[in-house]
Design a protein around this nucleic acid. Structure first.
Lengths: 205, 205
DNA sequence: TCCTTTCCGTAACAAGCGTTACCGTAGCAG
DNA sequence: CTGCTACGGTAACGCTTGTTACGGAAAGGA
């Protein structure tokens, strides 16, 4: 059984290269050759690791979801109560912490592609539903007295605010700086503040 | 001077075809041949009306902005006071009234394209600043006592909420139906309600 | 050491893209 | 009716795309 290569490492390498290209050149710039060049190989390896371009695209989409889910899990786990978790999860969704600010751009690219690709659209919806379920669970923990209807409205309003900020900031970072986004989030979260908690003061810095 | 055609009508026809294609097939499906087919002509006419594809794209972008501005003007003019205008302008931005629901999809497409095209990005910013200025003016009229900082925060929060809802609804209309969007807008507008007004009851139908 | 088998770089392919040159044709002036 | 001129359809160009076929090279077993 000669010459066996690490398949998983290659897929990760190519996935990273894929959405790195996606962040830099946008969706139209996403070509197999660009991905190969960014990954430091040729299209041969790309086509051996993924049967088709769409498979690569879908894998990159899954990886994007996986990363955001991991970060959201971490933010939630590091919080002491439900409201802190809500602040942390939504806050990290806005200002991507480790220089991953490009993820918003990638997200927009995938969203635009999803409007014409059913598979991408389905993955987008699955990812969004997962995010919605997480936020709804946290909101429900903060406000157990709320009925389902209000839970849903508040949850989707918060998510729409955050994603809207991300989208607008991706195209116009000057008009939508991080501080403004965080303040807007804090103001929106004031409604959810549990009764026994001091009103909406968010974070120290 | 023989055989003179209506240039402007052709440009409008082609612009409409452009974003009709954009709405149906997404950004990657936007080709000159697709535009020509949708407009019922060939690429010859397209290239005679516009020197290049980018010119066509920019004109279509301008047309999109123009339409939204006209509708926003109309919504504002039909309102009796500033708060009503705020409700009307933001409300029509969410549920596009005359079957123009595809405009959100087109907007997403242009936004994604703007992330890789400086000219489109500049037009996007100009359009968004125009929208921001309109909303800010109306919010300021509702709440003259607010300082600039709060004006800006509320304005951009409202816009982010509306655009976020539009974006999410474009990819997942089931999860973000019109009624929910309108209720979310109404809840967000409750904060802006002028002191002398009965709380946030929106519109009759 | 050599052989075998898997890997992957090379290069070609057809298809589609934006763009261009060309020429038939349609409409107005005389 | 005839002729001229701008319009626009046709078809080709060069280029890039995703995809595929092929062959050299590298690594483990004998």
């Amino acid at each position: 059984m000669p010459k066996q290569r690490d398949v998983r490492a290659q897929r990760d390498l190519l996935s990273n290269a894929t959405w790195q290209v996606l962040a830099g050149s946008g969706l139209p710039g996403l070509t197999l050759r660009a991905v190969a060049e960014r990954a430091g190989c040729t299209t041969g390896l790309v086509m051996h690791a993924f049967p088709t371009k769409k498979a690569l695209l879908l894998h990159a989409r899954d990886l994007l979801y996986e990363r955001t889910a991991v970060r959201a899990d971490a933010a939630e786990a590091a919080s002491r109560d439900a409201f802190g978790a809500l602040e942390a999860v939504l806050g990290q969704a806005i200002d991507l912490p480790h220089g991953h600010h490009e993820e918003s751009r990638v997200w927009v690219g995938f969203l635009a592609a999803a409007l014409a690709d059913d598979d991408l659209a389905e993955r987008h919806r699955a990812a969004n539903h997962s995010f919605l379920a997480r936020i709804r669970r946290l909101v429900a923990a903060c406000r157990p007295d709320w009925p389902d209807e209000r839970l849903e409205l508040t949850t989707k309003s918060l998510v729409a605010l955050v994603e809207g900020m991300n989208v607008l900031a991706a195209a116009d970072p000057v008009a939508y700086p991080e501080r403004l986004q965080q303040e807007a989030l804090a103001a929106a979260l004031a409604e959810v503040t549990p009764p026994g908690r001091s009103g909406g003061g968010r974070r120290s810095g």
